[in-house]
Computed example of a mutant assay.
Amino acid sequence: MEGYDKHAFEPFAVTVDLAVFTVRAGALQVLLIERGQEPYAGCRALPGGFVLPKESAGTAARRELAEETGLSDVSGLHLEQLRTYSEPDRDPRMRVVSVAYAALLPDAPEPRGGGDAASAHWLPYDGLGPLAFDHERILADARERIGAKLEYTCLATAFCPPEFTLGELQQVYETVWGAVLDRPNFRRKVLATPGFVEPVPGAARLTGGRGKPAALYRAGDATALHPPLLRAAAGSPPPTTSPSPPASSSSSSTPTSSKGSSS
């Protein structure tokens, strides 16, 4: 454009960061890399990197995920934009603005490091310790976003395999929310919501014990829950301790149970 000086403003970089979650071994786990370059070489970080001149942020997010973790074939990946992080001092190299994404995977494959990532691993969300850049904040924001969306959308099915039991679906809610849900109440609410899940005719799966096989379901065509399944009304947080009941009580206590990655 005539008269426009593109050098009038100081340049800055745009990056993407991905907070990728899955449920494994009954725990919420997150995909992290070990940075292979400075800054923060050897530190854990979210997968991510710089947006190239000819690509969108969404395209860059999928490319970086494949390059740094080897997860290129992720047909079940649910990916949505979280927010933009633009604090001036968030990257020691230069001014870097990051577009962060939250992603969910059901039966998550094992990652492998690549690109500028020395390694990649699924790690339990609880007790991760310090992360590079402002990735602890991004990860916390992503966790809260997912927990909130489980209340009023059918997003929980994105954590499940194509065919799942209601017990497996309930475990997703309990794992993400950190709460124990009443099984009959949960089952009633799920089955009463049109389009939340659909039964798989004639399919069942043994889930342990001596009971009969559990019926299998698949995700329905609904996207929203009416009414929502609220965390406050769904259950109680698990106790931090499991004290023994008083000797006089007859009941027992049941425990509730970058490629220059940016940003």
Rank of each mutant, 00 (worst) to 15 (best):
A232L: 05
R187Q: 06
A203H: 04
Q29N: 10
T241W: 08
A222E: 07
G70P: 03
L52Y: 09
S258M: 14
A132W: 03
A203E: 06
L31Q: 03
D134L: 09
L225R: 14
D73R: 10
S249P: 14
P39G: 04
T256F: 13
L150M: 13
L191Y: 09
L139K: 02
Y85L: 02
H135C: 11
A203V: 04
A215H: 06
P227K: 11
R112I: 10
V96A: 04
G36I: 00
A192W: 15
R35V: 14
S75E: 12
G208N: 12
Y152W: 10
A19L: 00
D126A: 14
R143M: 01
R95I: 04
R112A: 12
T223S: 14
V97C: 14
L46W: 00
A192P: 12
Y40V: 06
L79Q: 09
V200M: 04
E80T: 04
L216N: 02
S72A: 07
A61V: 15
L79H: 11
G178D: 05
G129Q: 12
R83H: 06
S263A: 14
G208K: 06
G115F: 00
E2P: 09
L216D: 02
R218L: 06
L139W: 05
G58Q: 05
G178L: 04
F50L: 12
E110Q: 01
E136R: 15
E55T: 12
V16D: 08
G211C: 08
E34F: 03
K189G: 15
R63V: 03
A203K: 09
F164E: 01
C160Q: 02
L216G: 01
P227C: 11
I33E: 14
E163F: 07
A66I: 13
H7V: 02
Y40F: 13
A142K: 01
H121N: 02
S261W: 07
L229S: 06
A222P: 04
L31K: 03
P243C: 13
T241N: 15
E163T: 09
E34A: 08
A108S: 07
H78K: 10
V200Q: 03
F186Q: 14
K259F: 09
V16N: 05
T153D: 11
G58K: 06
S249I: 11
I33T: 13
E174G: 05
T240L: 11
L225A: 08
T240C: 15
Q171V: 10
G58A: 10
P53N: 12
V51N: 05
T69Q: 06
G26L: 01
V23Y: 00
D89M: 12
A158K: 12
F50E: 13
P162R: 14
T207E: 08
T15A: 09
V190A: 11
L52T: 13
G114T: 07
H226E: 15
L82V: 00
P11C: 03
E64M: 08
V97H: 09
